[in-house]
């Protein structure tokens, strides 16, 4: 993989294929809120008596924010058509990405609001826990904001699952006897589900999703030119040495189906 695609793929853990300006917009809002709080608060480092209680409250809140962050990141990942972004490890990377982006704001806030005003004196464990909570909160705000901006025009999860499931089920046409009603109807379903998969993939925004779309369309255009007998061979595969050209198309199909299985989450 070249450097540029790698960076692009890394960024897509946060942007999910949408423009990075959406992210910047939310980030800038958070900066704005940070500066506003600087303007209106006189003493930012609060003196509290029951530190242990606050410690528990901040920690608990952090955990809740992280859970919400994970939930939203997972929902966004699941609505992409990128098989890689559906993996659990990549979902964690996405969450970490949001955390990092928010961490920048908190560090920035620390530098100008605390270090610049008190030179870092009097900062204890509670302040660190508070910073973590604030980071989690900002990360969550960022993810929720991003979710609200970009997800509306993505296919919903049910549609993704149903379209893939219908396609998978329609492969059964090859199991029916020639001339039977079952074969005729499932073959027609197969034809229409190819169309639906195409429609679904046309909504892909991520690099991976678009690659899957290109892969699928290239396979499909070749597949549709074949006779029904060759189509069956491509779907079934061949036990022994057979037609290598069709075997190649069978392997492509299997790879595409594997990617759809990841997207479907089974």
């Amino acid at each position: 993989m070249e450097i540029e695609p790698k960076i692009r793929f890394a960024i897509e853990h946060i942007t999910f294929g949408y423009g990075v300006h959406y992210l910047l917009q939310v980030l800038l809002l958070q900066f704005a809120s940070l500066f506003l709080s600087f303007q209106f608060s006189k003493d930012l480092v609060l003196e509290v008596e029951k530190k242990s209680l606050f410690m528990i409250v901040y920690s608990g809140a952090s955990v809740i924010f992280v859970l919400i962050l994970l939930l939203f990141v997972k929902r966004m990942s699941e609505r992409t058509l990128s098989p890689k972004l559906h993996r659990k490890s990549n979902i964690l990377v996405s969450a970490a990405g949001y955390f990092l982006a928010s961490g920048v704001i908190v560090v920035f806030g620390y530098v100008i609001l605390i270090h610049a005003t008190s030179r870092g004196t009097g900062i204890g464990a509670l302040d660190y826990v508070f910073s973590v909570m604030l980071t989690a909160l900002f990360a969550t705000l960022l993810a929720v904001g991003y979710h609200a901006r970009v997800v509306d025009d993505q296919p919903d999860r049910d549609r993704i699952i149903n379209t893939i499931s219908k396609w998978e089920e329609s492969f059964s046409w090859v199991e029916y006897e020639e001339g039977t009603e079952g074969r005729k109807s499932t073959r027609e379903e197969f034809g229409s589900s190819l169309e639906e998969i195409s429609d679904l993939l046309s909504m892909a925004k991520t690099k991976d999703g678009r690659e899957l779309k290109d892969e699928f369309e290239s396979w499909r255009s070749s597949f549709e030119q074949h006779s029904q007998l060759s189509k069956e061979t491509i779907i079934r595969g061949q036990q022994n040495k057979g037609n290598e050209r069709l075997e190649q198309e069978h392997k492509q199909l299997e790879e595409i189906r594997d990617q759809f299985q990841v997207i479907k989450g089974s």
Partner: peptide, 19 residues
């Protein structure tokens, strides 16, 4: 495209006649 049909499945005439 060539189609290799298993000789152990010759009773499946439906496939043969499509060639």
């Amino acid at each position: 495209e060539e189609y290799y049909h298993s000789l152990s499945d010759l009773s499946n005439r439906d496939k043969l006649i499509q060639n």
